[in-house]
Nucleic acid binder design. Structure first.
Lengths: 335, 335
DNA sequence: CTGTTAGCGCTTTCAT
DNA sequence: ATGAAAGCGCTAACAG
């Protein structure tokens, strides 16, 4: 015997199904005080709990938002996820989450799952890949969208899909200029994966910024690797293997910068004095790392809020979030 | 017009609803090759996506696990959540997440929500509170459980509810002894909230450990505060205000220890040399903090895995996870 | 204000 | 192997 049904509650309260439904599940219709009380009492006594799937079916949607990230344990995604959850709960939505481990296919799987779940909308966080065949995603999105499903990307736009974007190129350029203005003249970049649009944008922006100050990064000082702490560590180790003083290093995200800092120390060098380094994102973790890391503050939580806003508000939208360069000790010139 | 229905697919394929259902949604029944192909084709062409709520209603459950944490951005919860998600995805379950911000009432709200959603089970992560009126939770759980809903606690047992527990007392005692064995003789504890069972257990365990080595923490050196980085910072600041060399400090979790380390530095003291400190949990963040923090490694992700296992396996269960003391630089004796 | 009654889309006996 | 039909629990017209 399963959970009590609305029917049983109605029965016990001696009212019709409709009446019970009206009092228990926020209908606009109003019910007489006497009956209302009887229904509530009956529900109490039976420990009634509305059958969500049945409601969802009858209503056509779920009050749910799907969230797709590649790795919830990565501080970047954690922050955005936290923002999404905050905003969603505020809007009375429930968040269902899926992780991809970086595999684009998993993204589609989850999208299909959420669609099938009849989620009100889906937030997909994570950089597009350069040369991505856009079609599969766009296709899915289109057919999902045609049937009222809403999708918001947090990364880069794909077609007309609503999107929350960070102005990576502009900010990376600003960082580059700030670094030059601090007196740095030699540079290296831990550039992340070659195909991630986010890392490419940051690299490009950084180069543009340098160029506007008549500086450049030598090709051999651009090293690619995974977008993770381990990737940063490996990239930095490789770089140091070729050149013990590569100049000021720009890691395209903080997590990589952290790995790189560890690698620098392990090589017997001192972060800042021997090898200045800057990151990107300003994840909260940085608060406890010494030397303090120069980086670009990106409003990650806010990105999550915006994504939910785009999902719940009518009409599309394309939000470009800015940020700000934060110079700290890891790039301070001591001479 | 909404999404295509199974009926439309069946129609287009020229078969019955039942047949279409059997081929599209993993039934045990088998269908002739010819029809099967026609159905699949029709589904393709129509971009059919099964209506999850309808399936859930017909089947009675959701293939969903609810996850309740107080704050997804706290590394402790992040790790456990990551473990839950890993295990759930492996088991073909989807995870739906709710946050409480530390308010016990929100826990009940979410529990109700998940129950209503007909989640297969719910994982509740987060310390019970001492003097909690167990009844509300236990009540809800009981009536949920009677109807086939499964709940697993990750923290401390409540009644007969399956639970994944960390042996906080034992481990805190081991830490205390290890610290004494390192030569420390004076101690202070940043003890967290007075009512959280986890913090109380760690405090008690620590005291027990000291006692077994004929040591103790003076009452004025036990300072309570929030279970967060800010709480650790505030507690440490307060402690230092009374006593610039309180001895070896035990922060009942790493996040607090991190806040405390910042406070120590801000007070112009040096972590380790002036103020030795140890934490608890061994969150990944510690990898990038200097001096390296002595702590107790707790298998957080594994706790998440175990929780899902308990949820999916028949029968109850009570898992007690152990951990290990990890002595690093923050408590090294230099004299 | 309250009750009747169709569905919502799918699964699952039960026949054939 | 396939189809017909009875629900699953709830909402939302539509009637009173």
């Amino acid at each position: 015997m399963g959970q009590p049904t609305l029917y049983e509650v109605a029965d016990r309260a001696g009212v019709s199904l409709a009446t019970a439904s009206r009092v228990l599940n926020g209908s606009t219709r109003t019910v007489g005080e006497a009956l209302r009380l009887r229904v509530m009492a009956a529900a109490q006594e039976l420990h009634y709990s509305a059958n969500g799937p049945a409601q969802a079916m009858a209503r056509g949607h779920n009050n749910t938002v799907g969230l797709i990230v590649s790795d919830i344990a990565d501080p970047y995604f954690t922050q955005i996820a936290a923002g999404v959850i905050e905003a969603a709960e505020k809007a009375g939505l429930v968040v269902t989450m899926g992780t991809t481990g970086g595999e684009p296919d998993r993204e589609l799987d989850h999208l299909g799952g959420f669609r099938s779940q009849r989620a009100n909308g889906v937030v997909i966080v994570g950089s597009r890949r350069h040369g991505d065949r856009i079609e599969p995603l766009a296709d899915h999105l289109a057919s999902y969208g045609q049937h009222g499903g809403r999708v918001v990307l947090v990364s880069q736009p794909v077609g007309e899909i609503p999107c929350v974007e960070v102005d990576n190129r502009k900010l990376a350029a600003e960082l580059a200029r700030a670094l030059v203005d601090q007196g740095h003249r030699e540079f290296a970049v831990l550039a992340g994966p070659t195909d991630l649009v986010t890392s490419r944008d940051r690299l490009t922006g950084f180069r543009n910024g340098l160029r506007s100050r008549q500086q450049a990064v030598p090709a051999e000082n651009v090293v690619h690797g995974a977008f993770t702490r381990a990737g940063g560590h490996a990239s930095m180790t490789a770089l140091l293997g070729r050149n013990r003083s590569p100049g000021c290093v720009f890691a395209v995200n903080d997590v990589m910068a952290l790995g790189a800092m560890a690698a620098i120390e392990e090589a017997g060098l001192q972060v800042g004095r021997d090898v200045p380094i800057a990151g990107f994102d300003d994840i909260p973790t940085l608060a406890d790392v010494r030397p303090t890391l120069s980086t670009v503050r990106v409003p990650l939580r806010e990105a999550g809020h915006e994504a939910v806003r785009l999902l719940t508000e009518p009409g599309g939208g394309h939000v470009v979030l800015s940020g700000e360069v934060v110079l700290r000790d890891s790039t301070a010139r001591t001479d």
